[in-house]
Amino acid sequence: MKIKSLILVIVFFVLPRLSIAQCAMCRAVLESQDDNSMAEGINNGIVYLMALPYILLGVLFYLVYRKMRS
Rank of each mutant, 00 (worst) to 15 (best):
K2W: 12
K2L: 12
K2H: 12
I3L: 15
I3R: 10
K4M: 14
S5I: 13
S5F: 09
S5V: 11
S5K: 09
L6V: 15
I7W: 02
I7V: 15
I7A: 14
L8Q: 10
V9I: 10
I10W: 00
I10H: 05
I10K: 01
I10T: 14
V11K: 08
F12Y: 14
F12D: 14
F13R: 10
V14N: 10
L15V: 07
L15R: 01
L15E: 03
P16G: 01
P16D: 05
R17W: 05
L18F: 06
L18S: 05
S19P: 03
S19M: 06
I20Y: 03
I20M: 07
I20N: 03
A21S: 15
A21P: 02
A21I: 00
A21K: 08
A21C: 04
Q22A: 10
C23S: 12
C23W: 01
A24H: 04
A24T: 11
A24I: 12
M25H: 11
M25P: 09
M25V: 14
M25G: 05
C26W: 00
C26M: 01
C26A: 07
A28T: 09
A28S: 12
A28R: 06
A28P: 04
A28L: 02
A28N: 10
V29C: 06
V29M: 05
L30K: 01
L30S: 07
E31M: 09
E31L: 07
E31G: 03
E31T: 03
S32R: 09
S32T: 06
Q33V: 07
Q33H: 03
Q33R: 05
D34K: 12
D34H: 02
D34P: 08
N36R: 04
S37F: 01
M38P: 05
M38E: 13
M38T: 15
M38Y: 01
E40F: 06
E40H: 03
E40R: 04
E40L: 02
G41V: 00
G41Y: 03
G41I: 01
I42L: 03
N44H: 06
G45H: 02
V47T: 07
V47C: 08
Y48R: 14
Y48D: 13
Y48I: 15
M50D: 12
M50V: 15
M50C: 14
A51H: 06
A51N: 08
A51S: 07
A51T: 00
L52D: 07
L52R: 04
P53M: 00
P53S: 08
P53D: 00
Y54W: 13
I55M: 08
I55Q: 03
L56I: 10
L56D: 14
L57C: 11
L57T: 15
L57K: 04
L57Y: 09
G58C: 07
G58D: 05
V59G: 04
L60G: 08
L60E: 05
L60S: 11
Y62K: 10
Y62S: 09
Y62D: 10
Y62C: 13
Y62A: 10
Y62F: 08
Y62H: 14
L63W: 05
V64C: 06
V64T: 11
Y65L: 12
Y65R: 12
Y65C: 11
Y65F: 13
Y65A: 15
R66E: 13
R66W: 01
K67L: 08
K67A: 14
K67F: 07
K67Q: 13
M68C: 06
M68G: 03
M68N: 11
S70N: 14
S70L: 07
